[in-house]
């Protein structure tokens, strides 16, 4: 009997010691201790600068203010109202018929004119922009790149067109993990509500993507980077405050019409 008590007591003490070891080590900020976060930020900044040059050299960047102004205004509003440092966010509108938008390292956002054409109102466009801003704010871009290409490759990235093309391709045509997509969706709903934009329109474009994937090849890029659009649209609708009134437009109607005319 005494032996049983000894075993129980020793087992309990051992369990407590092991649990303490796990709690202590799992609660330690290893990334901070190894300056990993700082190095990751520096790498993101450097990759961002390389990507900026790469886009300007290889892609057709829209310079028409009729195309860039609505994007500029919406990003500015989303950032300002949600306490995001707008001056640190760079965006590029690229002349491309594909329906696509994605975030790049160094707090950059790429929007294709195909997406501007597809959006039926400013809130749909704002929804996609808010979603991509959330990826930037939650540092999903570098997480995805590090996972797909490896952090060592990113930290040694040089001005090599082929590798930069691979980074561009990876971010433009492969999906984030589902968990990250949902996190970005939920943050986007919040950004839109705070900025007085209609989050239901974000769900609308997600529903439309899901419905059109068989018939519209131009949607393929957005579909491949945003799978399960329907279930995500439903989750967005669930997250929207049901009593939220339909907000007034943020952009002057002429600005939206000018953009559509310029496409």
């Amino acid at each position: 009997m005494k032996q049983t008590y000894t075993v129980l007591l020793q087992g309990l003490l051992l369990l407590i010691a092991v649990l303490l070891l796990f709690v202590l080590l799992m609660g330690t900020d290893w990334a901070g201790l190894t300056n990993a976060e700082e190095r990751s930020e520096q790498t993101a900044q450097r990759v961002g600068e390389l990507m900026y040059d790469f886009i300007n050299e290889t892609e057709e960047v829209a310079t028409d203010t009729a195309l860039t102004n609505p994007v500029h205004q919406l990003i500015q509003k989303l950032c300002r109202d949600n306490g995001i440092d707008y001056s640190s966010v760079t965006f590029h509108v690229l002349l491309n018929d594909e329906v696509n938008a994605f975030a790049l390292p160094g707090r950059q956002l790429v929007v294709y004119t195909g997406l501007l054409d597809e959006c039926r109102n400013e809130s749909e466009l704002a929804g996609v922009l808010a979603h991509e801003l959330a990826h930037i704010e939650q540092d999903h871009v570098m997480k995805k790149l590090a996972k797909e290409l490896g952090f060592s490759m990113l930290s040694t990235l040089t001005n090599d067109g082929e590798t930069l093309g691979l980074v561009f391709e990876t971010l433009g045509s492969s999906a984030y993990d589902r968990e990250l997509e949902i996190a970005a969706d939920m943050a986007a709903v919040e950004y839109l509500e705070v900025a007085g934009l209609n989050p239901r329109a974000f769900a609308d474009i997600l529903y439309r993507i899901d419905g059109m994937q068989d018939s519209s090849p131009e949607f393929l890029d957005w579909i491949s980077t945003h799978p399960d659009a329907q279930s995500r649209a439903e989750a967005v609708m669930d997250a929207v405050d049901s009593e939220l009134p339909i907000p007034e437009p943020v952009l002057p109607s002429a600005m939206w019409d000018d953009m559509k005319a310029a496409l």
Binding site: F22, M26, G27, T28, W30, A31, R178
Partner: peptide, 15 residues
């Protein structure tokens, strides 16, 4: 899968 490397994961591996 969907998991990412975190402080908790590194701590678990060290323990």
């Amino acid at each position: 899968g969907d998991e990412v490397i975190s402080n908790r994961y590194v701590g678990y591996l060290i323990a």
